[in-house]
Computed example of a mutant assay.
Amino acid sequence: MSATKDDLAKAFDEKVSDLVSQLEAWFAEETAPIDGADGSDAPSGDGGSIIGTGPAIDSKRVVDARVVTKKVLDIELPPAIIKPGGYTSCKEMIDDIVPKLKKVFTGEIKVKTPKPVKQPEPA
């Protein structure tokens, strides 16, 4: 017997706080400066600084959050639901992704799953 959409929605709702806390931890780790500096001494204005001109995390890096979705929800994070360009904050990412993940989890949004890579025959 397979779970109904309501059953799946309830199961997602039970996991959402864990999902959010793990996404927050993942985001903090991914956006932390490599050298530990906070960037407050970076030039600003018209001086040509690239600090703060783009998103905090781009959409290609967000795909790596699949480690969280796989662990908490046992599903991959589909690239199709990630906002092109990325997110300027963790809150923006969570507000965008979590409702979409619920729809994927319950089957409301169908996403393409990649076909397994065919391994070449040994010579």
Rank of each mutant, 00 (worst) to 15 (best):
T4Q: 07
D6E: 14
L8A: 11
L8T: 09
L8S: 06
A9V: 10
K10P: 00
K10Y: 01
F12I: 03
D13K: 11
V16L: 06
V20H: 00
V20W: 02
V20C: 07
Q22W: 04
E24R: 13
A25V: 10
A25C: 08
W26N: 09
A32G: 06
I34T: 09
D35V: 13
D35Q: 05
S40P: 03
D41V: 00
P43F: 03
S44T: 15
G45C: 09
G47Q: 12
G48M: 08
S49E: 08
T53E: 14
G54L: 12
P55W: 06
S59H: 10
K60V: 09
R61C: 05
D64E: 09
R66A: 12
T69M: 09
D74Y: 08
E76V: 09
E76T: 10
P78F: 00
P78N: 03
A80C: 02
I82R: 06
I82H: 01
K83A: 04
T88Q: 14
T88E: 14
T88H: 14
S89E: 04
K91N: 03
E92F: 04
M93N: 05
D96L: 06
D96A: 05
D96N: 07
I97T: 07
V98Y: 09
P99E: 00
K100S: 11
L101H: 00
L101M: 07
V104L: 08
F105M: 02
G107D: 14
T113M: 08
V117M: 07
Q119F: 04
Q119V: 11
P120M: 05
P120N: 06
A123P: 14
